[in-house]
Design a protein around this nucleic acid. Sequence first.
DNA 1: TTTTGATTTAGAATTAGTCTAAGTTCAGCT
DNA 2: AGCTGAACTTAGACTAATTCTAAATCAAAA
Lengths: 134, 134
Amino acid sequence: MRKNTKGQETEQKLTPQREVVLQVIRDTEQHPTASEIFEAARKRLPGISYATVYNSLRFLREAGLVREICFGDSASRYDREVERHDHAICTNCGKLVDFNLPETAGLLRVAARKSQFKAESVQLTLLGLCRDCH
Amino acid sequence: MRKNTKGQETEQKLTPQREVVLQVIRDTEQHPTASEIFEAARKRLPGISYATVYNSLRFLREAGLVREICFGDSASRYDREVERHDHAICTNCGKLVDFNLPETAGLLRVAARKSQFKAESVQLTLLGLCRDCH
DNA sequence: TTTTGATTTAGAATTAGTCTAAGTTCAGCT
DNA sequence: AGCTGAACTTAGACTAATTCTAAATCAAAA
């Protein structure tokens, strides 16, 4: 993914470090924190530094390859799922689960009107108890 | 708000410091961070400490008098609105605006089924451009 | 092969938030 | 009025998350 044989730009910039970070996120069922990603990335690329993980996360987020999520806890978490989807957060143990509720998208128009925003996307967050906690 | 004349418990514990913190949040249109709340509280009660602001915020949150919110930025923000409501976040300038879309509540049941959570509440987050940014 | 610009590295710096220990306040007792 | 214990506050130390910095490296272009 660098350049093709004739030197035309293709999709520059997916360096080995960034690729490892991306792979780590894609291989994780749950939603890892930066520090969990760092630990896992170091197993595959021992020299990688913390700052590079953060830089890569910013790059991947801006490239739309991963999504950053934030829910209560101090640290941000990262999600391999970049398509529109919804979240359920357990108010007891803090677990975050993805799910998809297509009906949500239908509220985009009316939400935009109410908030007077130019809408880009919309997502639902359910708070409650996960299966393990009830 | 301490005890009544006969020593029966009323609503103990809303100390002057906590009251000031609550007042600061209620007097703010936007959604202040803990450090903004600290600055404002110090104007009204010069001796108040940072730790007390954090303790008060935890107390007020647990008492249901304010709500803690978290959106991307590093620091948590606090919201005087404790009723169910929805948020719109500007993807350009980061502004967070409250609005209420009663239709959202109608999705609680189906969201709970999809996610297999025992539902407590549900909220919608709209991402887009605020009035100033489009 | 030199230059240029982007990337990576290690570690320092910053920031948000929590913890601790000592001091203060207050209701309830005497 | 004085004592006590629990709850609260304070200042500052501490921790954890994230960003910054400066030097080293790399890879494409000249």
